[in-house]
């Protein structure tokens, strides 16, 4: 199939959805489904860029800070659990238990303790995204080839250099996978904690709009959240592909030989 027909076919479904929604919402006048142009106008009024500094940027700052804390804590913890056998055997099951708690479940108890300030949000995000990063790092420690570890020992690479240059590098595909899951959890927690308990933020505004039956604002908020969710993942994937270009190259060359 040529690229042109692929692109053409790819456009069919989105265009069909948009057109049928526009036609239907114009006629039905349903309170839930306002016309597309009304939603887009509200989107522009709210998010370009009136509320960006008051409601979008603080949320994103919480997200970034929380995830950063999770990575800073999760990688060393995972490295210890993965490299020191008795530590892994002792705390691995506990970690498995906590990772099995649905992230949103962490919000009610943490809100009870910490309240609804930004620092509480950062903590909730950090706690929720810590577990996937930590587990993936512990798992990544098993990826280092024993021969390479022997080679590093024969070169008398110190323990810290071996950890950084061999174990963490060899485990980087797994670790980045864990950070990606952590990012998803962080995003969910950012939105959910604002929906549940907050006084500002996109999640809060969108949920308030739903409660007050302001369906236009609700749609505009949903649109922005979807856009942000997609973009956050796309940015992460772009960074990951850059960092892991060696991994892709190696797999391609091994598969073809």
């Amino acid at each position: 199939m040529s690229l042109r027909s692929r692109v053409a076919l790819g456009l069919v479904v989105p265009v069909a959805i948009v057109v049928s929604y526009a036609l239907w919402s114009a006629n039905a006048a349903s309170p839930y489904f306002p016309p597309l142009d009304v939603i887009l106008t509200r989107f522009r009024e709210l998010w370009l860029f009136d509320l960006v500094s008051s409601d979008v940027l603080p949320s994103l700052k919480n997200l970034g800070l929380g995830l950063l804390l999770a990575v800073i804590a999760g990688i060393p913890c995972g490295a210890i659990l993965g490299r020191i056998r008795w530590m892994g055997e002792m705390f691995g099951p506990l970690l498995d238990f906590w990772r099995s708690v649905p992230p949103i479940m962490l919000i009610p108890p943490l809100v009870l303790i910490l309240g609804i300030e930004d620092s509480a949000k950062v903590t909730i995000i950090a706690v929720g995204s810590f577990f996937p990063v930590c587990v993936a790092t512990a798992d990544g420690m098993r990826q280092a080839d024993p021969t390479l570890v022997d080679a590093a020992r024969a070169m008398r690479l110190g323990p810290l250099k071996t950890m950084v240059d061999i174990y963490l590098r060899a485990g980087s595909p797994a670790i980045l996978g864990g950070i990606q899951i952590g990012l998803q959890a962080a995003f969910v927690l950012m939105v959910a904690s604002e929906m549940l308990a907050a006084y500002r933020g996109i999640g809060y505004l969108t949920m308030q709009a739903q409660v007050t039956f302001d369906s236009v604002t609700m749609w505009a908020g949903t649109l922005l959240l979807a856009l942000l969710g997609f973009t956050a993942n796309a940015v992460f994937v772009a960074i990951r592909n850059r960092v892991l270009s060696w991994h892709t190259g190696m797999r391609v060359s091994r598969a073809s030989s």
Binding site: D145, L148, R156, D165, W246
Partner: peptide, 20 residues
């Protein structure tokens, strides 16, 4: 323990070199 005066070459070159 491994000595600085000694070097090692392994059979499995694909595994003893760092692919990254």
């Amino acid at each position: 323990e491994p000595s600085p005066k000694m070097s090692l070459v392994f059979q499995e070159y694909t595994r003893s070199l760092m692919p990254w």
